[in-house]
Design a protein around this nucleic acid. Structure first.
Lengths: 227, 227
DNA sequence: CCAAGTCTTTGACGTAAGTCAAATGCTGAC
DNA sequence: GTCAGCATTTGACTTACGTCAAAGACTTGG
């Protein structure tokens, strides 16, 4: 597919006139990363940001002893690595491709120039960053004020939502990953899933989960019940 | 002082030509809040954002059983409550004035109009949001991957930095507040301070703290040592 | 289709940090 | 100054969750 076509489908660039899309295509570069490849590392200096066109990328922090906390998982259409663009400091976290992926790369200075001439691009970017701040707000709230079962329940409900509110949902990643996303470790996640299953809140079959007691999960997520 | 003068001193509006500052003054409103007053609450719909001109404001989340996690503390010159402006959803957290304060309020729609005509205002705002995202990144890392002594050590070093790298620092808030900022409770904070004191890392005198072993604190903050 | 990895689960155990309760210390109003 | 009302500290106790270790269960690629 043409680069310009790909660009025109990205939500961040929604509503831009054709000539501006052209300008964007003029500065953009396509890059491929195999599954498992490091896209950038915390502390590295940044010369631009990325948008996923295919595949999946994980943004995460890691502690000296190897525990990891996932900050974001991004798929097609989503930008990442923008913070340094507007702030001029190194990347604040690590990024790894979780699948063979293609990204469009926008060099920092050229992109900033484009924004200067394009208020609606600026507003779109402000909206992206705002949404991300809101998400972090939720993440901090979860990590600091909820326990793991509550976070897991919230996540299951979120997945159900994403997947047309069915009661049958699929965890879209290995359970070890999910643990990192929820701020815990695989063993703990495993135990809690087992407990939820024992209490008939859910039924587990590999990475497929059936929600048997939605209200029970809601209560857990809100912190009004405990497991 | 004239409103326009106050506005011209705000970092967010740095580098704006006088006529734009004038436009800003045209839409701005001054508001006063007594210490302890709620500025806005989570879930409330937002019609604009604020900039502190004097006093102090606390942005926080709170759990059903009353534990609170402070997200930000903002003082003069700093904007807050901007997320809903660019995203059009309710406030994601609570805000309370910690001292008698004055804020400048900018209504949402008028401000967005200004941004459309003013690329450098947009870039300044993008920089503000980016800095905030970076801070959250650190907060998540701390909450998820460090324990309380590490967070406290990091905070003490941060304060020392703020206060000209002196070894004598002042906690700028009651210890209960500090606990909320570090994602813990007053009892735990108290115990850890006592422990640090016993191990000659610091000396405590009320809300004044003397750093006796800076390297020891650094090791704690990095997680290479434990208390 | 088998073997070598990786994931995942389970158990026994340790520990950081929260809860509850009581004592002590401070502060500001009158 | 004194007293009421907080903030802070300390102790005894509980608990959620991480660590370590080992056994099963899936995937992959040859």
């Amino acid at each position: 597919m043409e680069l310009i076509q790909k660009i025109s489908r990205i939500p961040l660039f929604e509503g831009l006139p054709p000539d501006q899309l052209n300008d964007l295509a003029g500065i953009a570069l396509e890059k491929s990363f195999e599954r498992g490849r490091v896209v950038f590392s915390e502390g590295q200096s940044a010369h631009g940001f990325f948008i996923v066109t295919s595949g999946k990328v994980k943004i995460f922090k890691i502690s000296p002893d190897g525990k990891e906390q996932i900050l974001h998982l991004f798929g097609p259409g989503e930008p990442f690595g923008e913070v340094p663009v507007f702030e001029g400091r190194p990347f604040p976290a690590h990024a790894i491709a979780l699948a063979d992926s293609r990204f469009i790369f926008f060099p920092r200075t050229a992109f900033v120039e484009l924004i200067k001439n394009n208020p609606s691009l600026a507003l779109n970017m402000l909206a992206v960053l705002s949404r991300r701040l809101r998400r972090f707000t939720v993440l901090v709230d979860d990590l600091s004020l909820k326990e793991v079962p509550g976070r897991l329940a919230a996540h299951l409900l979120y997945l159900s939502n994403q997947q047309q509110d069915k009661d049958d949902i699929e965890l879209e990643m290995p359970k070890g990953q999910l643990a990192g996303l929820l701020g815990t470790i695989p063993e703990t996640l495993s135990r809690i899933l087992a407990k939820m299953s024992k209490q008939e809140l859910i039924a587990i079959d590999g990475r497929f989960i059936n929600i048997k007691d939605r209200q029970g999960l809601i209560d857990l997520a809100e912190g009004s019940t405990r497991l």
